[in-house]
């Protein structure tokens, strides 16, 4: 491997995109070539300079103009610390109180509102939430989705996640709520019985 090849294709070679042998050759070349080591070190310095560019942070005023409903953000929940640090307790609670059913039209289904209380020791930003629904349930407004993923922040302390469900039948499995942040994840599972306990408003008609 020559210097031009290494410098031209540095990222792909070191990432193993050209295979293990090529990656080993690249490392061997770097170990023996001061010019390519200097080049690679400068690439790292350049990346840090670009990443640390403080002026690149979005001013709050701009964020307010672009996302007026999200500034300050209604923090969602949960236990981030959980996710982040060992020794930080994350407490998940299923709140038993039921919310009024949201539907007014006659229906054969039942509405159920599941509320999860997520305790977090730290504030975390951009936490990924994933919801997986068992057969026999629908997320209100998303009749065809068995899973839903979104991002939000978690505040310190108690955060509540409200999940509006429509029970079209007996749930055929567990409802899974999963949080991921910084490579770590936390799961909460609700059994069919725990889901249906939150059902309200049994309807008598047909859903149209």
């Amino acid at each position: 491997m020559d210097c031009r090849t290494l410098q031209h294709d540095l990222d792909a070679l070191l990432a193993g995109d050209h295979g293990e042998p090529a990656m080993q050759q690249a490392h061997q070349h770097l170990a023996n070539c001061p010019a390519c080591r200097a080049y690679a070190a400068d690439v790292q310095t350049l990346r840090r300079a670009l990443a640390d560019d403080a002026e690149g942070r979005m001013p709050t005023a701009v964020r307010q103009r672009l996302l007026p409903r999200r500034t300050p953000r209604p923090a969602l929940a949960a236990a981030a610390a959980v996710i982040m640090a060992a020794g930080t307790a994350l407490v998940w609670q299923h709140l038993g109180d039921q919310l009024p059913g949201a539907t007014t039209e006659p229906a054969e289904w039942t509405t159920a509102t599941v509320r999860l209380d997520l305790q977090s020791g730290n504030a975390l930003s951009d936490v990924q939430f994933q919801l997986e629904l068992p057969e026999g349930t629908q997320l209100e407004g998303h009749p065809d989705r068995r899973s839903l993923t979104w991002h939000d922040d978690l505040a310190v302390g108690s955060n509540q996640l409200t999940i509006p469900l429509i029970l079209t039948g007996e749930p055929q499995g567990e409802l899974v709520a999963r949080l991921e942040h910084d490579g770590k994840s936390r799961e909460l599972r609700l059994t069919p019985a725990e889901i249906t306990r939150r059902g309200v408003g049994n309807g008598a008609g047909n859903r149209n």
Partner: peptide
């Protein structure tokens, strides 16, 4: 507590 709701 702060509430977060899903899309709908």
């Amino acid at each position: 507590s702060k509430l977060a709701h899903l899309w709908k």
